[in-house]
Amino acid sequence: MHRHVASRWLFTLLLALPLLSQAAAPLPSWNDGPSRQAIEGFVEAVTREGGPDFVPPAERIAVFDNDGTLWSEQPMYFQVLFALEEVKRQAPQHPEWKTQQPFKAVLENDRKTLAESGMKGILEIVAATHSGMSTDDFIGNARRWLASAKHPRSQKPYTEMVFQPMLELLDYLRANGFKTYIVSGGEVAFMRAFAQEVYGIPPEQVIGTTLGSRFEDRDGQLSIQRLPKLVHSDDGPGKPESIDSIIGRRPILAFGNSDGDLQMLQWTAAGQGKRLAALVHHTDGKREWAYDRESKVGRLDKALDTAKSKGWVVVDMATEWKRIYPFDQ
């Protein structure tokens, strides 16, 4: 009888071993493909004490773009969608917007005129809706929008449109002594409104495009007021510039998804010792979106060619990710 029970338990254990192994393995939403192997091999190499590629924990800096790298960016950058909604919400305090472009186009849902205003028009909208208030008030506005707004296709909150494989990668890196930063073209205070909760990245490790600011003391009420003036565009060459200025260390790992991330990846890869530069390639038109060279949002052209010529990691979403979002089955 006892022998029968022991045999049954042994048989059950043998059946469970593959599942236990899978649960314990890092990056469970990544298929066992070239990208996962490259990432795990890199982490093992730089964390192996006494090994030729060992990197002390203080120097294990990993930087990530946000839009299109940590969460989706279609059909438009989420911060731009927030800014458009803010135009409508703030319109009663700005009667001049009824006749002033590009705000008039937003209020009248005139997509053609808004599109014709181009990046200049978008920047004007962002500057107007993201300034004229304290930093605390702006972050409050962003959090209110994020708590109620839904993505037009999935009808999920924007903070759920994050990539499950990348959340796992952030956790995996931090468990191995890495310090993870966001280095994005998005406005820094907007990202700080959710980065800690969604990514586990504290505000002091969020770097982005910055507007001007001014310290004010109004009868003892202290605040940092946001000004409608661009101070630093954290895109393209602006990314390694802000890394050098704010972090003060060259990263050993960098992840992006577009041409706007090219210089950040180049700067990371050019350092001494073992390095990992990687791109998220949006190839999954069924579960997410498929786009690269011709896209107006998150265009990936020159950076893709550079990645292939330099042997950087290029993550094929369609084949290398088991699931895209946390809510996927």
Rank of each mutant, 00 (worst) to 15 (best):
residue 45 A to T: 03
residue 85 E to R: 15
residue 115 A to K: 13
residue 72 S to A: 11
residue 46 V to E: 02
residue 62 A to M: 05
residue 76 M to A: 15
residue 80 V to A: 13
residue 100 Q to T: 15
residue 91 A to K: 09
residue 58 A to Q: 08
residue 129 T to P: 04
residue 111 R to D: 10
residue 50 G to D: 07
residue 88 K to W: 11
residue 54 F to C: 05
residue 95 P to Q: 12
residue 83 A to S: 15
residue 56 P to S: 10
residue 102 P to T: 08
residue 96 E to C: 06
residue 68 G to F: 10
residue 132 G to P: 03
residue 103 F to Q: 05
residue 110 D to F: 03
residue 133 M to P: 02
residue 83 A to G: 13
residue 134 S to I: 02
residue 122 I to Q: 01
residue 65 D to W: 05
residue 105 A to P: 06
residue 127 A to C: 06
residue 49 E to C: 01
residue 104 K to T: 12
residue 111 R to V: 12
residue 60 R to V: 04
residue 113 T to G: 00
residue 88 K to S: 14
residue 87 V to H: 05
residue 123 L to E: 07
residue 72 S to W: 03
residue 79 Q to R: 06
residue 64 F to T: 07
residue 67 D to G: 10
residue 71 W to G: 05
residue 87 V to C: 12
residue 89 R to V: 10
residue 58 A to L: 02
residue 114 L to K: 01
residue 48 R to E: 10
residue 133 M to N: 02
residue 101 Q to E: 15
residue 48 R to G: 00
residue 134 S to A: 05
residue 107 L to I: 07
residue 68 G to Q: 10
residue 101 Q to M: 03
residue 63 V to L: 00
residue 114 L to M: 03
residue 129 T to D: 02
residue 79 Q to F: 11
residue 69 T to F: 06
residue 93 Q to F: 14
residue 110 D to A: 06
residue 53 D to P: 01
residue 104 K to C: 07
residue 126 V to D: 00
residue 100 Q to E: 15
residue 91 A to V: 08
residue 130 H to S: 13
residue 66 N to D: 08
residue 136 D to Y: 00
residue 46 V to I: 14
residue 53 D to A: 13
residue 99 T to H: 12
residue 93 Q to G: 09
residue 47 T to L: 04
residue 59 E to W: 00
residue 80 V to Y: 14
residue 84 L to R: 11
residue 96 E to V: 08
residue 133 M to D: 01
residue 115 A to P: 00
residue 126 V to G: 00
residue 61 I to C: 05
residue 73 E to W: 10
residue 48 R to Y: 01
residue 99 T to W: 08
residue 91 A to N: 11
residue 61 I to Y: 03
residue 73 E to D: 12
residue 73 E to P: 08
residue 65 D to V: 10
residue 96 E to K: 03
residue 105 A to Y: 07
residue 55 V to T: 13
residue 68 G to H: 09
residue 84 L to G: 05
residue 118 G to E: 07
residue 81 L to Q: 14
residue 125 I to Y: 02
residue 55 V to H: 04
residue 55 V to A: 05
residue 59 E to V: 00
residue 98 K to P: 00
residue 100 Q to H: 13
residue 93 Q to A: 15
residue 42 F to I: 03
residue 97 W to Q: 12
residue 128 A to W: 02
residue 51 G to P: 08
residue 76 M to Y: 10
residue 112 K to H: 09
residue 107 L to G: 07
residue 44 E to I: 06
residue 124 E to W: 00
residue 57 P to S: 06
residue 92 P to V: 14
residue 130 H to I: 01
residue 106 V to M: 09
residue 47 T to V: 07
residue 42 F to N: 01
residue 54 F to P: 06
residue 80 V to M: 14
residue 130 H to F: 02
residue 76 M to L: 15
residue 65 D to H: 10
residue 124 E to N: 08
residue 109 N to C: 04
residue 57 P to V: 02
residue 68 G to M: 12
residue 125 I to R: 05
residue 89 R to S: 13
residue 123 L to K: 10
residue 75 P to S: 13
residue 69 T to A: 08
residue 106 V to W: 06
residue 100 Q to L: 15
residue 123 L to G: 06
residue 60 R to G: 08
residue 74 Q to K: 15
residue 81 L to W: 04
residue 56 P to E: 07
residue 69 T to C: 12
residue 90 Q to A: 15
residue 74 Q to N: 11
residue 72 S to G: 09
residue 120 K to D: 06
residue 88 K to G: 07
residue 76 M to Q: 14
residue 70 L to Q: 09
residue 130 H to K: 01
residue 78 F to A: 10
